[in-house]
Design a protein around this nucleic acid. Structure first.
Lengths: 158, 158
DNA sequence: GGAGAACTACTCGGATAACCAGTGTCCGAGTTGTAAGGG
DNA sequence: CCCTTACAACTCGGACACTGGTTATCCGAGTAGTTCTCC
């Protein structure tokens, strides 16, 4: 899985905390985690294309969340970065080779593919159950000062 | 996900059907699905390294399943090809940047990582629940003649 | 005719290149705040 | 003093190189069956 997924999730959390109406430029986010600025920009652009974040150009510009954190699931973020295609893509090799041409061999869908899709569906279901708000709440419960410190840091470095 | 996973699962099914004590050479398997021989060999070798299949060299040699199909799960096959490392690997970026050095910031494990691991665990659980025997049975139920035809084809092309 | 040895063909196994997606970087388009200049 | 206008700085956005991993291929090590030779 792409490295940008971790970046995107953490940045979304920071946007949820620091974004009190203010847009956060990607340079700030990159400085906060010591990440390459331009590449992180690329990832956040993917969030914009997916409708998770919105962008503002020019001075005082930056990114902010397009929806409330309660309405953004981890699955949304992951699919925004990784794309919607399933990790396992059935190439229907059972239809190749000497038995491939016969129409009698294609009775119903490929069960191997089905089993894989079922597993991947469970993965997606688990990701969809977790929202950004829920994750943020869990972090606040575990370390109550982290969000405040982050917010203050983002506000101070104007 | 690697393309070889699909090949491995299908080949394991064929080994379970065609392997009545006889070892099946990889050239036979490759011909059955019209796949590149040497590369498929590489994948099946991974199955051997994982203890799923066993190999016999020389004439009348080939591969066979090392355990009964009831004892081989889809997760076994997938991890044999893809490796045991999780798809999402937490790089702990929360510990980088200006806040990284402070020891107070590392309160407990990374919750983002935890959420991702939970999802991946659900995926693994679903894969582990499906055995090769169960999958083979499902195929027989959907298309009762497929296993027999496969067995006959593998036996005929000595 | 039978036993032994050399040979041949066949298989796996790992070492070796080609290709592609992910990774990283750069510069241009657009926008906003600012400052200068004139009325 | 106030309005207009040009400027400058800052941000996103997409286009351009680089790199590790998957994909693909080849040749060597080892083994079983076969055949030839000798007793």
């Amino acid at each position: 899985m792409s490295r940008g997924v971790e970046w995107a999730v953490h940045c979304c959390l920071d946007l949820a905390w620091a974004g009190n109406g203010e847009a956060v430029p990607v340079s700030r986010l990159a400085a906060f985690y010591d990440l390459p600025v331009a590449y992180l920009n690329k990832q956040v652009q993917a969030l914009v294309r997916a409708g998770i974040a919105s962008s503002v150009s020019g001075p005082r510009g930056g990114f902010r969340l397009a929806r409330r954190p309660e309405r953004i699931s981890l699955l949304d973020v992951v699919t925004a970065i990784e794309g919607t295609e399933p990790a396992f893509r059935c190439a229907e090799i059972r239809q190749q080779g000497p038995f491939g041409g016969t129409p009698e061999s294609v009775t119903g869908p490929c069960l191997v593919d089905q089993a894989m899709r079922r597993a991947e569906l469970a993965w997606r279901r688990e990701l969809a159950a977790q929202t950004l708000a829920g994750l943020a709440e869990a972090v606040e419960r575990a370390a109550p000062d982290v969000p405040d410190r982050a917010r203050r840091w983002f506000d101070s470095h104007t």
